[in-house]
Nucleic acid binder design. Structure first.
Length: 87
DNA sequence: GTTGAGCGTT
């Protein structure tokens, strides 16, 4: 299973590859995707990062949350889409 | 050429 993490307040110059590289420093990133507008095709300023382990996701959240990137402080937290919180 | 709250695509 993978852990999804919500990343907000991203600079407009960031991309999925950039996210994967930045978040890959804390752990194994299975996939990283920046949400882009469907109508304009431009980045909305937030994205999602999928980690291979909860430990890596927590390390990234603790290490990248409220951290400045490209001049903007990132907002990293657990994604809502995870569900399955408690059976 | 622009902007800034928000949880996406199969």
């Amino acid at each position: 299973m993978s852990v999804k993490v919500f990343v907000g307040n991203l600079p407009f110059g960031v991309t999925d590859e950039k996210l994967k590289e930045e978040f890959g420093r804390f752990g194994s990133v299975e996939s990283a995707r920046v949400v882009t507008d469907k109508h304009t095709g431009r980045s909305r300023g937030y994205g999602f990062v999928e980690f291979a382990d909860q430990v890596a996701a927590d390390a990234a959240i603790q290490g990248m949350n409220a951290q400045p990137m490209e001049g903007r402080n990132l907002t990293v937290s657990a994604a809502k889409s995870q569900a399955n919180e408690r059976p």
